[in-house]
Nucleic acid binder design. Structure first.
Lengths: 309, 309
DNA sequence: GGATAAAGTTGACTTAATCAATCAATTGAT
DNA sequence: ATCAATTGATTGATTAAGTCAACTTTATCC
């Protein structure tokens, strides 16, 4: 029965659909005391956000009947909201664009929608707002990955809770991807605790990659000796791989190490971590030592990589 | 400008509303090749899921015009889907209930909705389904806390990633609620790592309270000596307080300690943690020692509590 | 150059939804 | 006990929303 989800999931999904149908109904009410219907408002919105669309284009985007849309557009034109221009290369089509009055109407509608959305958000505990927005982004992303807007990520320094998060994700991901046992998570916890205990801001650093409050990756740079720095615990979330986050984190370490006056940057990893290997190679690291060991419940081959600074 | 959220949030919320309007439109299409409109389908659904409702009750629940609903109900009655019975205590009202044919119609509609929902879920990577459902539950909960269905929680043993999670939440919550610095998070990391390193399953345990994959609380019971056990790192998420999770976690420790043959259960806490104190008192712990100390960037009063087993 | 298709329009129509008026039963105040 | 006010439900009248099919014009493909 693969592909058939459990009944609980179906029921929950349907409940959410009923819930959000009501929710949208409530928001629609706020639109309805304008002179535009929901369909009209959506057409106006699309007109404002597209470059000279054709009627067919709008109809497909909004799943509207061509005849219905045709009349609606004529109405807009008569009301002075819309201008049509024959398409130069195809006289059957008209290129649609809003007039100044049309743009004004859209602006008013947008203001209303903004106000309704802001009211909804405003009614929430500020601490909960990011949770709501993140949940919405998750749903969009899962249901329509292609259309979801690109979300930028950035680097930041560590703060309360980050050490635990790093331990958590190392524990989960290495168990899932390589079957490593709990002793690895314990090791990461010890390293993270040691970092905080002996943290020397001038010579050590921790970076986290974050996207809308969600941590996507992390790395440590710690002092090994006066001239040698060590890169540790490079991690990128599976969902965020391929965005160049790993490369960026390593670059940041190299730059910091240079500036802090280290002569050499070293790191220890294992041969199974192939995508990390590629990042180290690209950053100029050289493999200087390999030796088998038994750790974390597995037979592994440890590798030492170095970069002259 | 408190209460006015940032524009980014408003834009994201509106985008989600547009997105889900389309989403619901797509699902509606699947309903539309039955002989019932969306409004009719919703009325039938409510009829099936309520005990002898009145027309007004339905109208309020679904925000339908009384006249529109009245005609719709007459239609259902003529089609043999609906039976009305005069309310014994108020002859103006009729109690509505589905006939066998009505229940059959609802069953068919439900099957369609189930199929549409299952198809949507089925198109997803199985690993992502819980993420979708959790995101939906989050939205429901945030936007309509009262109506969201109660979600049961349960206790489980620890597994990969849990130690890190526990460190993470301690770090975040004690920083936020009490302003403790990073050395506390480091201490928790050391304790968690030590637990894993020296774990003795017969005499030690870790419990986590979980709700739909989300961790709500945790506690450790560790060996102090042959006859003394120590309760450590009791934590309950702010969003889950008041559900009795803390009490349950402590009870579990006490039960385990008794069964493992310990003579005494001890714990160390700080006087600022007042709600934890109440839990310990209720479980029968006695405060045996208090002493001021300076830790985690604060002046605190440490407390030792004990329970004879 | 003729068949075919696409973009858009129009007429005819059905369904959905709203509003106001109405009626009967009930409630509450005196 | 009586009567105004309220409530539950229905009906008539009307408007808005949406669909379907026929049709015109222009473009495309052999």
């Amino acid at each position: 029965m693969t592909g058939i989800p459990d009944t609980g999931g179906v029921a929950a999904l349907r409940r959410f659909n009923r819930f959000y149908t009501r929710q949208i109904g409530v928001l629609r009410q706020k639109l309805l005391d304008t002179r535009y219907s929901l369909a009209e408002a959506r057409v106006l919105y699309e007109l404002a956000h597209r470059e000279q669309p054709t009627a067919t284009e709008l109809g497909q985007a909004l799943q509207l009947d061509a005849g219905y849309l045709s009349r609606m557009l004529r109405g807009f034109e008569q009301a002075g909201l819309l201008r049509r221009r024959a398409a130069p290369e195809d006289a059957r089509r008209s290129l649609l664009s809003l007039s100044a009055a049309g743009r004004k109407a859209v602006t008013e509608l947008e203001a209303r929608s903004d106000a309704a959305a802001a009211a909804l958000l405003g009614s929430l505990d500020p601490a909960q707002r990011p949770r709501l927005l993140r949940a919405m982004a998750t749903i969009e992303q899962l249901l329509e990955p292609a259309a979801a807007p690109p979300r930028p990520w950035l680097l930041r320094d560590h703060r309360a809770g980050d050490m635990g998060w790093i331990v958590h994700r190392h524990g989960v991901l290495y168990a899932r991807e390589y079957g490593w046992d709990e002793s690895f998570e314990a090791l990461v916890a010890e390293i993270a605790a040691g970092f905080v205990r002996r943290y020397d801001p001038a010579r050590e650093h921790c970076w986290l990659a974050e996207r809308e409050g969600e941590i996507l990756g992390s790395v440590f740079l710690v002092k090994e000796s006066g001239t040698v720095a060590r890169l540790r615990l490079l991690l990128v979330e599976p969902a965020a791989r391929g965005l160049g986050i790993g490369r960026r984190l390593v670059e940041e370490c190299v730059r910091f190490a240079r500036r802090a006056g280290y002569r050499k940057l070293t790191l220890w990893t294992n041969d199974v971590l192939v995508s990390a290997r590629r990042i180290y190679e690209a950053a100029g690291f050289r493999l200087v030592k390999e030796e088998p060991h038994h750790s974390f419940g597995k037979d592994l081959v440890g590798q030492t990589w170095e970069l002259k600074l």
